[in-house]
């Protein structure tokens, strides 16, 4: 007799349909990283809390922390990760990030860029205060905040 551990969950990640057979409670972050091997989305603070933003992705176009999103909540939805933000790494934010040499260690930057992309999608011309508010959930321990604050308006202008 075959034991079916979990129901298959189907979701679309960066335009590709994926079926995964995992505990429905498993956060999307770990499905992306450990099951689908999409390691651009990072772990930084852990399950149950949403404190650092390293795991930020888009779920059906809305900004989400994949570390606190159970995979069951992503079923039949569209997930976009840093790997899928643009086909060639030429999203205006990715270009602005390079122009301003934003990253230091780079670890938080997938999450920063995904949070910034969601901000620009709903507010094409954010003020400094709006940037601060939208980005407050994303920690950068290397301290690249002032460059992020400069790079977002530049990307906004180009978009």
């Amino acid at each position: 007799m075959q034991v079916v551990r979990d129901a298959m969950i189907e979701l679309t990640v960066n335009g590709r349909v994926q079926r995964v057979d995992v505990d429905p409670q498993m956060p999307l972050l770990w499905v992306l990283r450990d099951v689908l091997n999409l390691t651009g989305t990072k772990y930084g603070c852990g399950g149950g809390v949403s404190l650092c933003g390293a795991c930020t992705i888009h779920l059906s176009g809305r900004v989400r922390k994949s570390g606190t999103t159970p995979i069951s909540a992503s079923a039949d939805k569209e997930v976009t990760t840093i790997e899928g933000l643009s086909p060639d790494g030429e999203h205006p934010l990715q270009r602005a990030w390079q122009e301003f040499n934003v990253p230091q260690c780079g670890y938080c930057q997938s999450g920063q860029i995904m949070a910034a992309a969601a901000l620009l999608a709903r507010n094409p011309n954010p003020t400094d205060d709006e940037i601060d508010e939208a980005m407050a959930g994303n920690i950068c321990r290397c301290g690249t905040y002032t460059r992020i604050r400069a790079a977002i308006p530049r990307a906004a202008k180009e978009a």
């Binding site: 390691t39 651009g40 990760t81 990030w97 934003v102």
Partner: peptide, 19 residues
């Protein structure tokens, strides 16, 4: 003023960190 060699990887999630 030189951009770091890892910069394109940093903005596309391609950098390989420990995990």
């Amino acid at each position: 003023e030189t951009s770091v060699v890892d910069l394109p990887d940093f903005v596309t999630g391609r950098g390989i960190y420990g995990a």
